[in-house]
Amino acid sequence: MTLSLSLTVNGDRHEVHLEDARPTLLDVLRERLGLVGTKKGCDRGQCGACTVLVDGRRINSCLTLAMSVDGAEITTIEGVARNGAMHPVQAAFIDNDAFQCGYCTPGQIMSAIGLIAEGEAGGDPERIREGMSGNLCRCAAYPGITEAVRDATERLSQNQRKSA
């Protein structure tokens, strides 16, 4: 028996057919839709490399059964730039030297976008570190990551003020 599900990923709708229900959202994104920006670090919820937004909320795609998010809107790292311009969080990561090897970076950026949308950390480095604690960085770029998230939070609130 084949199963099917539909996902809207970065605004594009996909119908996916599965032989059985085992694939996670992470595996469907990478293996079926060719969106390899989302990384598989631990595959067990322990590192955050697989972080994506599901209906606007950050989750670990490695512990999410694809079938259970049938019909959802997914945003991955491939979908955050607008009209060729980097997302402010992406720009802030570059400007603040927030990575070394880059493997954890897509997950860090998606997590930061989620954190800023949640709106609870503000510019407090301690709250940012706690809010980003679900994303490990083996290169230990943590000081840069914290600074990038603080910087991006500021840029985004300035953008909001400008457009208001």
């Binding site: 919820g45 955050g48 670990n60 512990l63 679900g134």
Partner: peptide, 9 residues
């Protein structure tokens, strides 16, 4: 408990 991503799920 856990992480922000896990708590969201």
């Amino acid at each position: 408990g856990a992480s922000p991503q896990l708590r969201n799920a």
